[in-house]
Nucleic acid binder design. Structure first.
Lengths: 259, 259
DNA sequence: CGCGCCATATGCCTAAAGACACAATGACCG
DNA sequence: CGGTCATTGTGTCTTTAGGCATATGGCGCG
């Protein structure tokens, strides 16, 4: 029987959750038996420019160029901001914005000597997204390799979720041991005092709405249908005596201003 | 490519560390692709009699008999107390004490309709050992299956270690971490510092949008057509590198939060 | 002067949000 | 036990937002 190379890194990754070795171990795990030439890790935000978390065999110069210019053309970034879709994201699946994509490939990837790229997009607490990118300089990722990543995605997600959770409890004890790979952990939690008439579930919906997620996204995230989410919105709006998402934002605003 | 059945249970097991679903998920993971007819989970101690933690497809009557009598013949228990060896432990490797083993097999296993057994012995904090046992009623475990478990053992160990750690540091969450009561800005005016790239007219539009006015309302108020307002929105979104009104609210939020 | 750039303006089409009606389940409560 | 309510679900319809093409007028600049 062929020995698998995955279990060692997996065990290490499990043990490393909540520590500052977490991201490194996660990279080791993801890339354990997927050939790759270099790795980059970035964090995306809905409202801020991307951050570079880590990189392997990638020049600081290219990091600078990405942060200065090319992030605008980054199709992974654009896709996430538009759809907020997490999971395994091969470069070739991002055929949306031809112009931007072309500029990214012809410019940034060519200068970085990258021929193919696959992103593992993970929820990163608050409204952030952690993207781990494997890159190849000559060949492309095969469908079977993408399938392998897809299959293992739940494991990656669970590991990162655990890390965020562990890190969260750590914040409450010590003061901000924010390492280079630490999650922002900014939670726009809705205080119970606000909108006491809402049920728990409805508050959960409000939370996601105020985080900027569109209906389809919320449905996917909660594992319910779009119709149900709309129904929830309806009931929430009724209770708050409003008719649009816009007014929900305004009420939240008002609340913050009044303090 | 053959789909593996291991990744789903693995993800669940990772997520369940620190919760009371941990042992169950661990069982699911260990037994995911190892055929077995029943499962028992016991905890061994150097100074106390064994405890029964869980069992699947195993009668309460047999649990009682084990705890009353047969545990003294249990070769796994005897082996652990003598050698304190952890890891994967197939029944056939326990050829030490023929007398006891014979009684265990002839008595307990026969009554339980068990023909082969393999134990996964995990460190359980302090001086304890958690034993997860897979049992077969007719066939035996093959060497290749034992090798598979051996290979994955580090993962099982890491998971259980994490569970112990999480259980140890089970603190209550902090509440209300927010500090300074920032003086609420009475005027909802958009400061020029924010979004300097917008023209005067565009800032006027943004003001109205953030005030909650729909497109038609803005058009009427400004004495222009709905289409023009939409075009303004489009241009504003382009400049701010967003695509929806939602994100405009988020950016404004962000600005206020950063202050 | 023409040329490019930008703000302003508009119509057409698609995608998404919202309004409304209806229904099944399960938990909780008097 | 029946009634209320939360939750999830479906379907159809209207309204609105967003994407795209395009047009006009002012303005600086070589």
């Amino acid at each position: 029987m062929r020995m698998s190379t995955i279990w060692g890194p997996l065990a290490k990754a499990i043990a490393a959750t909540g520590t500052d070795r977490h991201v490194d171990c996660l990279i080791d795990l993801i890339g354990a038996d997927i050939e790759h030439d270099l790795v980059t890790v970035t964090r995306y935000s809905a409202t801020q420019t991307p951050e570079f978390i880590k990189h392997r065999r990638f020049s600081d110069e290219m990091v600078r160029r990405y942060l200065d210019n090319y992030y605008v053309f980054d199709p992974f970034y654009a896709s996430w901001r538009r759809e907020r879709r997490l999971g395994i994201m091969p470069l070739k699946r991002l055929a949306d914005d031809e112009a931007k994509r072309g500029q990214y490939i012809a410019g940034f990837l060519a200068q970085s000597e990258i021929s193919d790229e696959v992103g593992i997009m993970l929820a990163d607490g608050g409204d952030w997204c952690l993207g781990i990118f494997l890159d190849r300089s000559t060949t492309s990722f095969k469908d079977s390799e993408i399938a392998l990543l897809d299959e293992r995605l739940p494991v990656f997600e669970a590991l990162h979720a655990l890390d965020i959770k562990a890190r969260g409890t750590e914040f409450s004890r010590t003061s901000a041991p924010t390492g280079p790979g630490a999650s922002p952990q900014q939670k726009p939690t809705i205080p119970t005092s606000l909108w006491p008439e809402l049920s728990l579930r409805e508050r959960e919906l409000v939370q996601l709405i105020l985080a900027g997620h569109p209906t389809a996204n919320i449905a996917e995230r909660l594992g319910i249908t779009v119709g149900t989410v709309k129904n929830h919105r309806r009931r929430i709006y009724d209770k708050l005596d409003i008719t649009t998402e816009r007014e929900l934002f305004l009420q939240f605003f008002q609340h913050r201003a009044d303090g």
